[in-house]
Design a protein around this nucleic acid. Structure first.
Lengths: 235, 235
DNA sequence: TGCTTACGATTCACTTGCGTATCTTATCGC
DNA sequence: GCGATAAGATACGCAAGTGAATCGTAAGCA
């Protein structure tokens, strides 16, 4: 009946002995003598570990405990630098946020496909993270992905596809007419949606599909597949 | 030094007395005499509460503790029915999952806009929930939103926009040509993306924008705004 | 009416994480 | 080399959640 209690009571009885043993160890639990990191070097190591934890376990698993364990230090070290969880999170995101390379191939289509390809390669973890893993963060703070993106992105800067379109216009590949932001940025939105839904890397087929079947026709690019020449049936 | 241990030891010592006291109380702590829910009625109440908890606090806050507290019962009652957290979650989602109404107005554009409007009204919480609130669930289980949707959706059924397009073809509003699934279902994808990004209800303007600036032009609907007549500059 | 079921309540030991308070000691600047 | 600094370790009190066990009793049925 009370097996559990008996066993536990027995363990409790050894607390004193365990404490004494720990003291006898003298705290040489870890590799004492190894170089002790300080200042920026330590900070970098912490943020690296924080990033890993964030990607692997999401915001929910993004605890001081987990980060400290992973970096091989203790929580007080983290608290000294980032008193709030948000501070550590923001520092981590800021360090690892870098814009995706926008290719300049001289072809609208190749630019678009190339950029989405870069996005997939560079941000497979990033966008997944920002969209899904940070769900708890967004709920806790009441913010959204778009707001976080705004705080991380340098303001007033053209988006990748605005750049791509502008170049195509300069080349004369596209007419110089006003276009809605919705249409211009459509490929990245669809790409991001695919990534959200599947939680996986977006396939090359999907990228080409987005560009050839949706974006280029919308931009009125000659030779692009029209609505009546799409290959796949509605399934 | 060992204050904690001493204190705990002291508390431990009172266990017998506390048990005796509880027995003397007779368990009449709450409003005895109020009707006690049983069977299906209790189950419904639990799932209702579970749904509320899920929407409000997300999967992370979706604990037996929280659900039990909200429904006014205790955790063992929940454990008896759903031994695993996933069981309770699936039961909750199954109960509250219902398809969005697909309007049949006789107009392709009105059908599309109307459906997205219904989606926004019916699923503002739902899709937000499924996308963002369940992030931990997806990570824990290694599944994705698309897989969950597949398990909840009746298989082999046409999507809303496939239905809408098929009706338009029957009416002669659209030519009977093969269309890619990507293009047909584009509006809901963009709608869902908007919801993901902003974590808010999708505005009517955005819905109209999706239909008029993206979808209808792609389907080659005459009179729809072409790529060169979009109102807003790239901003 | 009496019996069976199972609901509601409570307790328990345990785990994980938080935020803080120390203490020792390695490292750096002088 | 020496002192100031801060890394790293450990502990504490607290809080929330987990499964499980137990117990009294209200509800439903024969």
């Amino acid at each position: 009946m009370n097996r559990k209690h008996e066993r536990i009571a027995g363990e409790r009885g050894t607390i004193g002995a365990q404490t004494a043993k720990r003291r006898a160890d003298g705290g040489t639990t870890r590799d004492s003598g190894a170089s002790r990191r300080r200042g920026p070097r330590l900070e970098d190591a912490i943020l690296d570990a924080a990033w890993d934890v964030l990607v692997e376990h999401g915001y929910h698993g993004f605890t001081y405990e987990a980060v400290a364990t992973r970096v091989g230090t203790s929580r007080p070290v983290l608290y000294r630098r980032w008193p709030q969880r948000d501070d550590l999170l923001l520092a981590t995101l800021t360090k690892f946020w870098q814009p995706i390379a926008v290719p300049d191939t001289g072809s609208l289509r190749d630019d678009a496909i190339g950029f989405l390809h870069n996005a997939d390669a560079d941000r497979a973890g990033m966008i997944t993270l920002m969209s899904v893993q940070l769900a708890d963060y967004f709920r806790d703070t009441g913010t959204s992905l778009s707001e976080l993106r705004d705080t991380l992105l340098p303001p007033g800067q053209a988006t990748a596809f605005e750049t791509i379109v502008a170049r195509a216009v300069e080349r004369g590949e596209l007419p110089d007419v006003p276009r809605s932001s919705r249409v211009v940025n459509l490929p990245l939105d669809l790409f991001r949606h695919d990534m959200f839904i599947t939680m996986r890397s977006v396939s090359d087929e999907s990228i080409v599909e987005i560009v050839d079947e949706v974006w280029l026709p919308l931009l009125g690019v000659p030779g692009a597949p029209s609505a009546s020449s799409a290959p796949a049936p509605p399934a």
